[in-house]
Nucleic acid binder design. Structure first.
Lengths: 336, 336
DNA sequence: TTGTAAGCGTTATCAA
DNA sequence: TTGATAACGCTTACAA
């Protein structure tokens, strides 16, 4: 194993000079810098991570806490994890993966041992058990998701209310009057999951402004539950021509069922999905969809942690603007 | 921050005693052990990771290298990542996430810096650029996937040939004679991706043994490409009654197209998918599918790395047995 | 602009 | 069964 001392000897300088060349924390004359850099590459030197952490009081690692089972669509979780890793690397940081099966104690372990300098929590809940640990240990952290009490925390999330509003806006613009919102499973609303409620209220508010009639139906996402939701919707409001779906599992069934019931999309019924782009693209017809930038979520979370590590102040909450991409599944309301 | 020295003072013993209580590397009398353990919990001591790595020459971290873009269905990648993390924790190890955008150099960095003691590579290709680095640096590693040359390496993968055989077997048992295999995109076969070729040859071999007629059609997975593949199949072999699909994207389109063409599944045509369970469950009809245990892949990879770290010999290749779960999409061949 | 040297918090060897 | 103590490889005052 090549050590800093060996590099120093090889370059004919002191150890501290090598260290300073690496860290850039003091100015070095070009000739020495070059000698050192040559020595480094000739010997294939890589600083020892443990020693660096011990002496420098910084592990250059951030922990990413992922839930075992999650509300978040898995490919999106992965996209976030990857964007976090890439963004962290651009700051010279690596990412440690922590699963939530250790519970909040995992956080404490990682922070107290100095294994990680900071933490990013994914899939944060309104009343998240990990937050007290964060406060108690004073760990530098960024949250993806919005807890009930954000005081002193740094959070990034999609602007779900804005996303809901966008759906209402789009369908109203197309002349639809009766809209059904097919949502997550009832349990999700019963435990007051923030993203679900925020989307729904953003949607409802804008719908009210635009004078739309709205029906909200929770849905498990299975074929059967979607069929149940749809038939109730059509029974209660036969004039429904617009559908907003916020439930990945319900999309496929909904499209099949509309077809089966003789409704052509988008001529007879318009469908707007709240889902990731790749999902929207893979259906036939391709779905008009509202999406938030998942990789941006990861990137910003990393920026937040880095800012906190360097004692730069950060805003408490940052919401990312969603985008509606019109595709083939939405069109003008049918004339009656 | 609580140090080992503070614990020692609090317990009235020497630092080394505390260290040995923690590592269990020498026998300690019960009374001292208890005093030390009490001190540890009273002070909330967590050993410093950097110091431990430096002195002990082991970081207790393994790196998991994930591809940015992948052939593997993303939720399965995530499942593997999580099972790796959980399994690693059970050995006192943490997992560092490395993306492949650093290229093979990322591996070298992580190994040479002592950041990780070992490495798990996901989505390994036949001629993987990361393998030379592994050999050159002598890094302890486990590969998920099978490279062309496995000498000296520890690999785990699904038994794709077995999976293919299982599909042929199942359809033959049901009396089907003409089977179409709807595969991955042509490019996947052109670059001789191991899993694709192994599945296909396993399938072909068993089909031949059972006297089945077989048609293999690569497919991009889009609606259009699936439609193209299906119409060619039905043109070339109108008597085709069995379909094997190994392309997540093609499943939905195939089911729609069969329905559209007036074929009822499973009365007129049987479909067997090579895909993860959750995917098979979410279609209507639910799909008979062949699946490999993804979490087992992660678990075994960790065991392999741990064995290598402790100089225990390991087999070069371990293939995990796939399972066929019969569901609603396959049934007896129609009588002619 | 560069060098010297004192830690950082463990582990593990050598004694006792 | 336990205690001193010398590494481990780096960072960072403090000197020069």
């Amino acid at each position: 194993m090549v050590t800093l001392a060996e590099v120093a000897k090889h370059a004919g300088v002191s150890a501290s000079t090598v260290s300073y060349v690496l860290s850039g924390k003091r100015s070095i004359s070009s000739p020495t810098r070059e000698r050192v850099e040559r020595a480094i590459s000739e010997l294939g030197y890589h600083p020892n991570a443990g020693a660096r952490a011990l002496a420098g009081k910084r592990s250059h690692i951030i922990a990413l806490v992922v839930p075992l089972r999650t509300d978040v669509y898995v490919p999106v979780m992965m996209e976030i994890a990857i964007s976090v890793t890439v963004a962290a690397r651009s700051h010279g940081y690596d990412v440690l993966l922590i699963t939530n099966d250790e519970g909040p104690e995992g956080l404490r372990r990682v922070a107290a041992s100095g294994l990680a300098d900071g933490v990013i929590l994914m899939d944060v809940e309104l009343d998240d058990a990990r937050i007290p640990v964060l406060r108690e240990t004073g760990t530098h952290a960024a949250l993806i998701g919005l807890p009930a009490d954000t005081r002193g925390l740094a959070c990034v999330d999609h602007d779900f209310a804005g996303a809901g509003a966008l759906c209402a806006e789009h369908l109203a613009d197309l002349g639809h009057q009766d809209i059904a919102f097919i949502g997550y499973a009832p349990g999700v609303y019963q435990r007051h999951a923030g993203y679900a409620e925020r989307t729904l209220s953003g949607f409802r508010e804008r719908a009210a402004q635009r004078g739309l009639r709205v029906l909200h139906r929770p849905c498990e996402g299975s074929y059967e539950s979607t069929a149940g939701a749809l038939s109730r919707i059509l029974a209660d409001r036969p004039d429904t021509t617009g559908f907003v779906v916020q439930n990945e599992g319900a999309i496929g069934p909904l499209l099949s069922l509309l077809r089966t019931s003789g409704r052509v999309v988008p001529e007879d019924a318009s469908v707007v999905a709240l889902c990731p782009e790749p999902l929207a693209e893979q259906y036939s017809p391709r779905l008009t969809a509202v999406t938030g930038p998942a990789h941006e979520l990861g990137r910003q979370a990393v920026e937040l942690v880095m800012n906190r590590l360097d004692d730069r102040p950060t805003a408490e909450v940052s919401l990312l603007t969603p985008v509606l991409t019109p595709r083939e599944s939405s069109g003008p309301a049918p004339v009656r």
